[in-house]
């Protein structure tokens, strides 16, 4: 044993550089951060469909099935065409809205439990904690891309033509992704301390589903809400995303979001809302990150 004669010297702490900071939300090593986020998302995706081809197909079928049920009910059985404002493109609009809403739903529902579900990692290994909620947003984005392909095929088959406004689609998706990620960070932190967040959030999502123009069209909403109430309705970022998507992707006969808010400037409210949720989510997560391992 060669070093047994070592005697501790009085250290000059200033020579040692900066002390370590303990667990953090982010890291300066962005390459590792990205590799981790991507690979956790990939493994979670693989795990969900591990060894089952049907599982993967199911991922596509689920929104289609929901679409089928709603479509048949509202236009064929319930004959509520007038109520929902079902016009020529109603089918495509419904599917588009379901696909987009599924992204938010999936992204946030998975994110709620994510930190707690990755307890083994959080308690045993040092890594930037933000990787976990981000990987779930990324996972939801993988699925969204798959579903968008289905939507594209459906849209083209029902007579939608490519338009220049399709270029707006990525912007809308980014806006929704910012919202979903912000909510994911908020919810995953809250879930560490309050375990009933999950059922509460499920209810909130249900409310949001019916409070957004998914089944119902803005045409009908406008007939019932006027003035400020209509504006208020459009302050829901999901209403803006869904409506603008329908306008830009499916048909210009559907009015854009700005038409219902009463001017472009009012769009800043829902956009600002997304940004605030994201910043708040980040702030909360970042603050909690060093202590999450203590509270699991």
């Amino acid at each position: 044993m060669s070093v047994t004669t070592y005697t501790p010297l009085e250290p000059m702490y200033s020579d040692l550089g900066r002390p370590i900071k303990g667990p953090q939300a982010l890291t300066s090593d962005w390459r590792r951060f990205w590799h981790l986020t991507f690979n956790i998302a990939k493994t979670n995706w693989k795990m969900r469909f591990f060894g089952s081809f049907l599982g993967y197909v199911w991922q596509f079928i689920r929104p289609l099935l929901l679409f089928g049920v709603l479509y048949v009910f509202f236009t064929k059985i319930g004959h509520v065409n007038g109520t929902v404002g079902a016009g020529k493109d109603y089918g495509t609009q419904l599917l588009a809205a379901i696909v987009l809403f599924t992204f938010l739903q999936e992204g946030t529902m998975n994110a709620v439990r994510c930190v707690v579900d990755h307890e083994a990692l959080v308690r045993k290994i040092e890594f930037p904690r933000m990787v976990i909620p981000l990987s779930y947003s990324l996972l939801a984005a993988f699925n969204l891309l798959g579903n968008l392909v289905v939507l594209l095929v459906f849209a083209l088959a029902t007579g939608v033509h490519p338009m220049v406004t399709w270029l707006e689609v990525p912007v809308l998706l980014v806006m929704e992704a910012i919202l979903a990620t912000g909510l994911g960070m908020l919810l995953s932190t809250a879930f560490v301390y309050f375990r009933d967040i999950q059922p509460i959030w499920e209810v909130v999502l249900q409310i949001l589903f019916y409070a957004s123009p998914v089944i119902i069209t803005m045409y009908t909403v406008q007939k019932n809400l006027h003035g400020f109430l209509l504006k208020l309705y459009m302050f829901n970022p999901m209403a803006v995303v869904l409506q603008q998507f329908k306008h830009a992707f499916i048909s210009h006969t559907v009015y854009g979001a700005a038409y219902y808010t009463g001017g472009d400037k009012w769009l800043l409210v829902p956009i600002g809302f997304c940004v605030i949720v994201f910043v708040l989510g980040f702030w909360v997560f970042n603050r909690a990150a060093p202590y999450v391992a203590d509270n699991l």
Binding site: Y13, L16, G17, R18, P19, I20, K21, G22, P23, V122, R123, K124, I125, E126, P290, Y291, A293, D294
Partner: peptide, 12 residues
């Protein structure tokens, strides 16, 4: 290891 946040300083 940087898993817990501790008071005091640690260099690695």
């Amino acid at each position: 290891a940087g898993i817990y946040h501790a008071d005091g300083q640690i260099w690695r």
